[in-house]
């Protein structure tokens, strides 16, 4: 993967497949340059056995396609910067779900740039307009935030978040927030 935002798109699709109705994507960069990406879903979760093996690229079998290259690639991207990947999961009825966090040292020469995270979020929402996505990108310069439940509240039931006009609005909404934050940085 050429950009971290592509890894994020890829692994977030696991949460979609797990049947989650709420998915939280958080990026948090600390002043010392450590970036933590966390993904929290309320999907079906994984057994301890599966959690132990999901980062093994050879665990998957082509026929079941239950697990793929997504997590091994994310783990590699994190570890090659001196970071880590942690996965916690529960299959307990009523509180099932998975929380994943990946830490990156953005100062490392092996850190893949975040890239076009706005496109990643737009693609996720257009692919699964009924899932609630909560996205936060927190840095010392400010926070970019989107909660699709707020948009749903405005749009009502009649209009899908996946409509191209709505996706275009979301793209502009996020892009503006990033521009504003960049403005803060320059001040």
């Amino acid at each position: 993967m050429k950009e971290l935002s592509l890894n994020i798109l890829d692994v977030t699709k696991n949460s979609v497949t797990a049947g989650a109705d709420t998915i939280r994507i958080t990026l948090e960069t600390s002043p010392d340059g450590m970036l933590v990406f966390s993904l929290e879903d309320n999907g079906c979760g994984m057994s301890e056995e599966v959690v132990r093996r999901v980062t093994d690229p050879f665990y998957t079998t082509r026929t079941t396609r239950k697990v793929g290259m997504g997590l091994p690639l994310l783990k590699l991207a994190a570890e090659q910067t001196g970071g880590y990947l942690k996965i916690e999961s529960s299959t307990e009825a009523g509180k099932s779900g998975t929380t994943l966090s990946a830490a990156f040292d953005t100062k490392s020469i092996d850190f893949m740039p975040l890239g076009d995270i706005v496109s990643t979020i737009c693609v996720l929402i257009s692919g699964s307009p009924d899932i609630r996505f909560v996205f936060k990108d927190i840095t010392p310069d400010g926070t970019v935030f989107l909660d699709t439940s707020e948009l749903k509240a405005v749009l009502g039931d009649g209009i899908s978040l996946g409509e191209p006009e709505i996706i275009a609005w979301i793209r502009d909404y996020l892009t503006e927030q990033y521009k504003e934050r960049k403005g803060n940085l320059q001040k």
Binding site: M1, L6, L9, D10, K13, L73, S119, S126
Partner: peptide
């Protein structure tokens, strides 16, 4: 848009 597609550049294609 699986891992293979994304890695090969499917995201800008979809957009």
């Amino acid at each position: 848009m699986a891992t293979c597609g994304i890695a090969a550049g499917a995201r800008p294609v979809l957009s």
